[in-house]
């Protein structure tokens, strides 16, 4: 089975948090590609291949979007809504990854058809574990419909 390289778009304004995700990605999913933008406008530009993303090949279609809610200017919820209202973009799974555990945020995110809602844990091990699960669930299981060894060992 030929493994296709998957593209994950990370929308995260906090450089430290972006660094954490990047490191986890490197550890768990080195075969895939991580693209990072730091605000809502850039995220929409990427998706619609506008501005600096207009060049061919500059913005490969993401197979997964990791979206922070609190973003400067255009917030995550607007990005989510825009994507889900566009039939050509709606199938792309969007996982909300945020520090907010506020009920209103969770409700609004799922109300706008977020595919998952994950709260950034304030703990190293938990964060790593979360990223691992995320990788397995959204990049391996959903796309290849096969249970990798890692999944088996992790499931225990």
């Amino acid at each position: 089975m030929t493994k296709k390289t998957l593209t994950v778009l990370l929308v995260e304004d906090d450089p430290a948090h972006a660094e954490i995700v990047r490191r986890n990605f490197r550890d768990f999913s080195p075969e895939n590609r991580l693209e990072h933008v730091s605000d809502g406008v850039s995220a929409l530009n990427y998706i619609y291949r506008r501005g600096i993303f207009a060049e061919p090949g500059a913005a490969p279609r993401p197979d997964l979007v990791l979206l922070d809610l609190r973003l400067p200017g255009v917030d995550g919820l607007t990005v989510l809504r825009t994507m889900k209202e566009d039939p050509s973009l709606a199938p792309i799974p969007v996982v909300i990854l945020t520090t907010s555990a506020a009920e209103s945020d969770v409700v609004q995110a799922y109300g706008n058809q977020a595919n998952s809602y994950l709260v950034k844990p304030a703990d190293f091990d938990e964060f790593v574990s979360l990223m691992e699960t995320l990788e397995i669930y959204w990049l391996k299981r959903n796309f290849f419909l096969e249970v990798p060894e890692k999944y088996g060992s992790h499931a225990r």
Partner: peptide, 11 residues
């Protein structure tokens, strides 16, 4: 937010 950063990077 910074707390998440601090704790994770402590790891």
């Amino acid at each position: 937010s910074p707390l998440v950063t601090i704790k994770t990077f402590l790891g």
